[in-house]
Every structure is written in structure tokens, then in C-alpha cells.
């Protein structure tokens, strides 16, 4: 490799700092606002850093807004959707990875096509369906839709994880007298555990971040998940940006941590089909 001249290194470093700064700036604003007193936010002499630092904004966000409800709803919805997603995706991915049957290609294409539909395109029809099923304003409506709309990507991801497990493992187990379902349960599922974890976390984040279904299906404010709940703040608590930003920090931190943990696997899943 050639050595890089010093001025170029300086330039590249400066660019890296710029990229980092632009990525992080809104999150800094979020954190800084969350720690300011209301008087400091609405001051004619704006300050960059909060002084005094109001840590109690975080407590106030819990006490003065339905944040606890939102978090609870988000956890129930995301947990339920993840479970549903994995229970449906894992056997489907097993069939696509290991079993021989007609129409496999057709099914894979159908899975990809569903990826192209924006939830918004179907949300009106879904709203009618949800009303008919009597699930309006119920968390079940979101568990079902969130779990299903992340299904295509989960199946895709899990199929590639199963494909990476050598078929010899299955054959050995079959010789030992395992049935096909036994192979799936005793060989593939344990070996694909990291893949299952990544897929589950992906489904969890999808549901945690989902907005349009919750906006549409939930009518009672206390039943909202965090996304729509926080959006509600903007109208209802317009003046209390510090509390809203404190709640946003609470909503965003766990997801970012999970995401940093699984991101490499997601990228591998995305590029696996593309890089040849």
C-alpha cells in the first residue's frame, strides 16, 4: 500500500469529524434541551449549554406525562410482535432453506414483493379490516400488523442463516433417527441461535419504531406506544420541549444500544445477496 501524504490525512480527518458532527448534532440538541430549565429554553439570550443542569426534567417527564403508559405499551406491542414474527418466520425459513417443494421460487418472489408495499398504502384497507375484527384501539392490532410487516425481512434473514449451516449436520441427525421437525428443533434452531437473536431484535426495533399503524388504529391516548405518544406531546405540551426531549432520550437510547449490537449482522444480511 502507498503511504498517504500528511495534508491528505488532515483533510480526511476533518471530513470524518464533519460526518460525525452532522450525524450526532440533533441528538446533542435533544440531550441538551432535555437538561435545560424551561426559562432557559424560552430565553431571548439563548445559551448553548444548560446551566443549571436540570436532571429532574427526567423525573418530571415520568410524573407529568403518560410516559410510563407509553413505555409499557411499546414493550407489550414490540414483545408480542417479535414473538409472532419469529414463530412464523422460523419454520418458513426452514422450509425455504431445507425442504424441496414446487413453487419455492414463486414464494420467495412473493415475499420480496410484500417488501415494496408501504404500510401507508395498505393502512386504509387494514383499518377497515381491524374494525371488522373488533381490534380497533387494542394493542393486538399493532402486535399483528407490526409482526406481519417485518415478516418478509425476517424470513429473508433467517433463510440465509439456515443456509449457512452445513446440510451434513441435518443428514447426521437424520441418520440418528431424527424426524425433519426434529432436525429443525434440535439441530437448526440451536445452531442458528445468533441469527435468531438478530432477527428477533430487528423485529423488536421495527415494532418499537413503527408510527403509522399506531397513529391510525389507536384512539385512546393512554394506549399509544412511544412513537405516537411523543408525537402527541408536540400538540398537547407544545411549550415543554425539555420534557419532550427527555422522553425522547428515554425512548431512543435502548434502541440505539440494541442496534449497535446487531447492525453488522443486518448489513451482512442485506449484502449477502448483493455482493457476488
Amino acid at each position: 500500500m502507498k503511504r498517504r501524504p500528511a495534508p491528505l490525512t488532515v483533510l480526511l480527518t476533518a471530513l470524518v469529524v464533519l460526518v460525525a458532527a452532522i450525524s450526532v448534532a440533533p441528538f446533542l440538541v435533544m440531550i441538551i434541551t432535555s437538561l435545560k430549565a424551561s426559562s432557559a429554553i424560552f430565553s431571548s439570550h439563548p445559551q448553548w449549554l444548560p446551566s443549571p443542569v436540570r436532571w429532574d426534567n427526567y423525573l418530571r417527564a415520568f410524573r407529568e406525562t403518560p410516559l410510563t403508559d407509553y413505555i409499557e405499551n411499546s414493550l407489550i406491542i414490540s414483545g408480542g410482535a417479535t414473538l409472532l414474527n419469529i414463530l412464523a418466520a422460523a419454520p418458513a425459513a426452514y422450509a425455504l432453506s431445507r425442504l424441496q417443494f414446487g413453487g419455492k421460487k414463486w414464494i420467495l418472489q412473493a415475499v420480496l414483493v410484500t417488501q415494496m408495499f408501504s404500510p401507508v398504502v395498505l393502512v386504509l384497507a387494514l383499518y377497515h379490516l381491524i374494525s371488522v375484527l373488533n381490534l380497533t384501539d387494542s394493542l393486538w392490532s399493532l402486535i399483528l400488523t407490526d409482526g406481519t410487516f417485518s415478516l418478509a425481512f425476517s424470513i429473508w434473514l433467517l433463510t440465509s442463516y439456515f443456509n449457512a449451516i452445513p446440510v451434513e449436520m441435518d443428514e447426521a441427525a437424520r441418520l440418528d433417527g431424527c424426524t425433519r421437525i426434529g432436525v429443525f428443533r434440535r439441530v437448526l434452531m440451536p445452531l442458528a441461535r445468533p441469527g435468531l437473536a438478530v432477527t428477533a431484535l430487528f423485529a423488536f426495533i421495527y415494532a418499537w419504531n413503527e408510527f403509522v399503524f399506531a397513529l391510525t388504529f389507536i384512539a385512546t391516548p393512554d394506549r399509544n406506544p412511544l412513537t405516537v405518544g411523543l408525537f402527541d406531546f408536540v400538540g398537547r405540551y407544545e411549550v415543554q420541549w425539555n420534557l419532550l426531549m427527555a422522553a425522547s432520550v428515554i425512548a431512543v437510547v435502548p434502541v440505539i444500544l440494541i442496534f449497535m449490537f446487531i447492525e453488522r449482522h443486518l448489513v451482512e444480511g442485506l449484502t449477502a445477496g448483493a455482493v457476488r
Binding site: A20, I205, F211, S248, V252, I256, E263
Partner: peptide, 11 residues
């Protein structure tokens, strides 16, 4: 750089 990707569009 992961921050804007990971956080929800809503927030």
C-alpha cells in the same frame, strides 16, 4: 453514523 439510522423516524 449509526445514530440517525437506529433512532425512529418519529423521534
Amino acid at each position: 453514523l449509526l445514530l440517525p439510522w437506529a433512532s425512529s423516524l418519529t423521534i
